[in-house]
């Protein structure tokens, strides 16, 4: 009895406030957008401008590089994401690659934007923070950061490098320098 009443109520509510109307779009919702604010006098105009993706002609994809090799591979193993398919050995010093996964203030983009698999997202995110700590991407940082490593305090002041093998380690072991203490 209760279920019949609940279903009846939901039917009535749906007829009054049709939620499905939101799913129908009359405009094409593609292309990258940029939100611009203009103020002339007392009027504030906020508009979303559609833009083409920057540097789209330089985009590298594995299937474009070697179509025959990838097609034969696809039969047995499919790669989870485009970065896995490229099989790049990305280091934390490769700032030209890492800066593509980063917002203009240096924050890592979320996975729904980057489109990476879980493992690659974790790996790239860690390497971005490594590059930031090593002071290699200091033009991509929030304004309040102490940008230059030389202007940082204490132990952050000196050069630091990182080992990419430690990214997926639970506990990072002490460096084995084989010297007597």
């Amino acid at each position: 009895m209760a279920t019949i009443i609940r279903n009846g109520f939901s039917l009535v509510r749906k007829s009054i406030f049709p939620s499905s109307a939101r799913a129908i779009a009359t405009t094409k919702q593609l292309n990258i957008k940029e939100i611009r604010e203009q103020k002339d006098g007392s009027k504030l105009v906020i508009e979303g401008v559609t833009l083409p993706s920057p540097r789209a002609e330089l985009l590298v994809r594995a299937e474009k590089l070697t179509p025959s090799a990838i097609a034969s591979e696809e039969s047995d193993v499919t790669k989870p994401c485009y970065l896995c398919a490229l099989e790049l050995d990305v280091k934390h010093t490769d700032v030209l690659i890492l800066s593509q996964f980063v917002r203009s203030d240096g924050c890592m983009l979320p996975r729904r934007v980057t489109g990476l698999c879980r493992r690659q997202q974790k790996k790239i995110g860690k390497m971005v923070s490594m590059a930031q700590k090593a002071g290699l991407m200091i033009n991509l940082t929030p304004a309040y950061c102490k940008k230059d490593p030389r202007k940082r305090k204490d132990y952050k002041k000196f050069n630091t490098y990182f080992d990419e093998k430690t990214i997926f380690m639970k506990r990072i072991p002490d460096q084995n320098d084989r010297f007597k203490r």
Binding site: I32, S53, L83, L96, F101, S104
Partner: peptide, 18 residues
């Protein structure tokens, strides 16, 4: 060199630039 470097990541189609 930064401008002409090959691009790996492309934005999704409905991404809002910041």
């Amino acid at each position: 060199e930064v401008k002409n470097y090959p691009k790996v990541m492309d934005y999704p189609e409905d991404y809002i630039l910041k």
